[in-house]
Amino acid sequence: MTHTVGDADTAAALGSGDLPVLATPRALAWLEAATCAALDLDDSRTSVGTRVEVEHIAASPVGATITATADLVHEDGRLLRFRVAAHDGHGTLVAHGEVRRVVVDRTRFLERVPRP
């Protein structure tokens, strides 16, 4: 998945710092979106994130193009582990790590969510 860093994607905009560079929470969201895009589940199922271990190792300015990738590296029943990476348009590694997801029945999962 490819994204362009905009003003709304910066650390200053998201409150994770005060610089106009790609925010770690946005990089993580893009990496998680790549894991979701890598799945082919029927409409009754979805996946939920359960663990994230990501290093954000390079700054990216507004206007930078970031490509987020996810490779399924382990599957154990409903548990899925993805190796994730984000590179900028110059090929520089911006972030990398692992995201774990669990496949769930959409309806049953939502039925168990407490109501306010």
Rank of each mutant, 00 (worst) to 15 (best):
P114W: 00
P25S: 05
G89C: 07
A33W: 01
V103Q: 11
G91R: 08
R108W: 05
I66C: 03
T92L: 13
S44F: 02
A86I: 00
V104C: 00
R101Q: 04
G77A: 10
L39P: 10
R112L: 09
V62P: 01
F109M: 06
L72N: 10
A33K: 05
D105K: 05
A86C: 09
T35Y: 07
V99W: 03
V99Y: 04
D18K: 08
S60Y: 07
R108A: 04
L28D: 00
A64V: 00
E32Q: 04
C36Y: 15
S60F: 06
A37E: 14
V104A: 02
L41N: 11
E75K: 11
L79R: 15
H74Q: 15
D18L: 07
P61H: 11
D40K: 10
H87G: 03
E75L: 10
G77T: 12
P20F: 05
E75G: 06
L28S: 04
V62Y: 04
A33Y: 02
F109Y: 14
A70R: 00
A70Y: 01
E75Y: 10
L93V: 04
I66N: 09
R112T: 15
A85G: 11
T46D: 02
R45H: 14
H96G: 06
A58S: 14
D76P: 07
R115D: 07
S44Q: 07
A23W: 13
V54C: 01
A27Y: 03
A37R: 03
T35W: 08
P20K: 06
L41K: 13
R26Q: 15
P20A: 09
H87V: 12
V52C: 09
G97V: 09
L39S: 08
L110F: 15
P116I: 06
G17D: 12
R26D: 15
A29Y: 06
